[in-house]
Structures are given as C-alpha cells and as structure tokens.
C-alpha cells in the first residue's frame, strides 16, 4: 500500500466526515461515519479528480458496483487498482 495514496484518501474522507485524519484508519467502515448521500458523491468526485480515475458508482445500487466502498482500506485498494490499470 502506497502510504502517500492512503494518506491522501484518508484526508479527503476525513474532510467530508468532519473528522481529523487521525480518527480514521484502514479498518474504519464508511457506514460508521454518518455520511449522507451528498457526502458520498463528493467523496467519489474528489477521488476521481485527485487520482484522475473513473469510479463506477450508482447511488441507486451502492452495493452492486465492482468498486468496494465498504471500508477505508477497501477504498484505498480499489483506488490503487484503478490507478495501476491506468498506468498499464
């Protein structure tokens, strides 16, 4: 896991959750952060803009996409996957 990528992701999720980055780690589950639907689309947008990737996500089928949003660790892994696909 690239620690720079992880730190960036944790920072932008913390901002939307109105928390400090130190409050979050890879085990943190998104469902526990009290994020509303607007915060979720803002996080997706921030990840896409920051890493220049396209994340498959439909708010109507949040569990259906191949992009795992369940925990911060899962998000970091999924973003790294998309970034490496882009490089390949």
């Amino acid at each position: 896991m690239s620690s720079q990528t992880a730190q960036t992701i944790i920072a932008l999720i913390a901002e939307q959750a109105l928390l400090q980055p130190s409050d979050l780690d890879a085990e943190t589950r998104l469902a526990d952060l009290g994020l509303d639907s607007l915060a979720m689309v803002e996080i997706i947008f921030a990840l896409e803009e920051t890493f220049d990737i396209a994340i498959p996500f439909n708010a109507n089928e949040p569990g259906k996409g191949e992009f795992d949003l369940s925990s911060i660790g899962a998000i970091i892994a999924a973003v790294e996957g998309l970034v490496s696909q882009k490089a390949a």
Binding site: M40, V41, I44, F45, F57, N58, A59, N60
Partner: peptide, 8 residues
C-alpha cells in the same frame, strides 16, 4: 451525471 442517480 455528477449526482450518480442516472441509469445507464
């Protein structure tokens, strides 16, 4: 598109 509520 940004709202992620559209069906494809």
């Amino acid at each position: 598109e940004g709202l992620r509520v559209m069906s494809s």
